[in-house]
């Protein structure tokens, strides 16, 4: 399988920037999660070669880094689309029909939860509560919150993101 990070064409510059960031952090293990946040900001996701790079720089076993990456929902090993569609499945959203919104989104995008459309335009994920329960059901596209979403509104919301 080809290396997804170098495929993006800017691998080396990003690795250099990440390396510099790691140098600037404290040497302790407690810097790992901030470093992974930075790495995901840079690469968009955390493929194995990025994890290996972080592990080597920090003097940790790769398995430990992998363990942390897979534990937290925020970190992903799959390349993300240009836009991330996050559906809140908190209880308030659920009782107000979030499941129907999920169905509408999977149908509209033609992918399952956790997947990315083949044109890399959208990634579809779910989340626990966003803390915007007054507007339930809620979806988030990138950093924009859309409240009181109905299955009918889904297509119009997605159309705003190219």
């Amino acid at each position: 399988m080809s290396n997804p990070t170098t495929e993006a064409g800017c691998g080396n510059a990003l690795f250099a920037e990440l390396g510099e960031f790691i140098e600037g952090q404290s040497k302790g293990r407690d810097a790992l999660i901030p470093i992974l946040h930075k790495a995901q900001d840079l690469f968009g996701f955390l493929p194995v070669d990025v994890q290996e790079f972080v592990a080597a720089k920090m003097g940790l076993p790769v398995g430990e880094v992998y363990g942390v990456v897979t534990f937290y929902h925020y970190f992903t090993m799959q390349p993300r689309g240009r836009h991330t569609v996050n559906v809140c499945l908190g209880t308030a959203c659920y009782v107000r029909g979030a499941q129907k919104v999920v169905e509408a989104l999977t149908e509209e995008l033609g992918v399952k939860m956790g997947e990315t459309t083949p044109d890399r335009r959208f990634s579809l994920t779910t989340q626990r509560c966003f803390g915007a329960c007054g507007l339930a059901p809620v979806i988030m596209v990138n950093d924009d919150v859309h409240g009181r979403v109905t299955p009918k509104k889904v297509a119009a919301i997605l159309a705003r993101y190219e």
Binding site: I33, P34, H37, F71, Y72, H73, Y74, Q127, R128
Partner: peptide
């Protein structure tokens, strides 16, 4: 500030 990464 320390940022969490999404784990209840």
């Amino acid at each position: 500030i320390k940022l969490g990464a999404g784990a209840y």
